[in-house]
Nucleic acid binder design. Structure first.
Length: 345
DNA sequence: AAGTACCTCAACCGCCAATTG
DNA sequence: ACAATTGGCGGTTGAGGTACT
């Protein structure tokens, strides 16, 4: 173990790549593929270590690279993803076709961090700087668990994440609204260090209907707009989000809601839209979801597929806020909610 | 015009986990 | 089973360019 062997090798070139070297590497990989990187330089006639060749290919020579400045949309997406993923540049890059982790990292360090600070947002926590400076104790106060009876052995309750909160926004007291995540932009830390990023991270008050702006099809212009709370990373949300459109993605040992739903997931969800029920479950990305009959409590639609992470969830009527809150969503019909956040272990 | 401070970005470094022999 | 090797990742560096004084 220890240092990479190539670090010790002498007579290997370092530093910037010459056009001739680029040409050699490009020609070789185009013809033969890279295979084992350590053998590439020798085969391609380069005085470089395999690691250097790999990096040059990935960051510069790859034909599918998008060159040029980042668009505003790309910048916004990076900020959104960073709020969820932190400095996991490769995972962020995976969401931006044609962009490398290296250039995203550079963009972040040289530009985006600064932009966020100018907006009064801490680039590390993505919280308002004033919020941090005031040092307000916004930890949820522990209270009794709600009346839920369902439990699940895949889930563990997050310490301190259970609370009763009076939602206070300037929104109408509208029973058609759902609220995801902990109010107040709290992040829910799990024991293993991972976390659930919920609607609170996104800072959006979510109407029951509406559409994810990142999926422009099926936009219903008649639905109420999403209300973007102060500090939201989505300052430009115009149309209402459906909670389900916010999506819920699995990260390493954690879940996150956000506008990162894949087309496939979107299609899955739209299948459920064929029901007369109003579908709004975030859990659909976990292959189950919630539905709600008009003027009734939400109930679970279970097991969209065998790969559900919650395969033993059974469909129940009058299913109130248990699994929904497990993924950071609960009904907010009296502006008095029970919050229960659960993490996956 | 010269010195410097700052910015960008390509590339390296060092660590880690997975793979290989 | 173990050590060496490899690939991948995030942090960091420093050369070159630009802006500022």
């Amino acid at each position: 173990m220890g240092r990479h062997s190539c670090c010790y090798k002498q007579k290997l070139r370092k530093g910037l790549w010459s056009p001739e070297e680029d040409e050699k590497l490009l020609r070789y990989i185009t013809k033969y593929g890279h295979g084992c990187w350590s053998s590439v330089p020798k085969q391609a006639g380069l005085q470089r270590c395999g690691k250097s060749c790999r990096l040059r290919w990935i960051n510069y020579l790859r034909p599918d690279l998008k060159r040029g400045a980042f668009s505003q949309d790309e910048e916004n997406l990076i900020i959104e993803l960073h709020a969820v993923l932190g400095n996991r540049w490769s995972q962020i890059a995976a969401q931006l076709p044609g962009r490398t982790d290296n250039e995203i990292k550079n963009l972040w360090n040289s530009c985006l961090k600064k932009k966020l600070r100018l907006r009064g947002i801490d680039p590390i926590t993505h919280k308002l700087l004033t919020e941090i400076e005031s040092g307000s104790d916004d930890k949820p106060k522990p209270v009794e668990k709600s009346q839920q009876t369902y439990n699940h052995n895949h889930l563990v309750e997050t310490e301190g994440s259970s609370s009763t909160t009076t939602c206070s926004t300037n929104q109408n007291n509208n029973s058609d609204h759902l609220y995801t995540g902990n109010f107040g932009f709290q992040r829910l830390s799990l024991e293993n260090g991972s976390r659930i990023a919920t609607g609170s991270d996104l800072g959006i008050w979510i109407p029951q209907t509406g559409r994810n702006q990142h999926h422009h099809h099926h936009v219903d212009e008649n639905v109420p707009s999403a209300v973007v709370l102060p500090g939201s990373m989505f300052s430009s949300v115009l149309t209402g989000y459906r909670s389900s459109n916010l999506g819920l993605i699995e990260l390493e040992n954690s879940f996150s809601t956000g506008p990162m739903m894949t087309e496939q997931q979107q299609i899955q969800e739209s299948n459920y839209n064929n029901n007369s029920s109003t579908f709004f479950g975030t859990g659909n990305n976990l292959n189950w979801g919630l539905a709600m009959e008009e003027n009734q409590n939400p109930f679970a639609i279970s097991n969209h597929s065998n790969s559900s992470l919650f395969s033993d969830i059974k469909s129940e009527t009058n299913f109130f806020g248990t699994e929904a809150t497990n993924v950071g969503m609960w009904p907010c019909n009296q502006l008095q909610t029970q919050q229960h956040a659960y993490g996956h272990i």
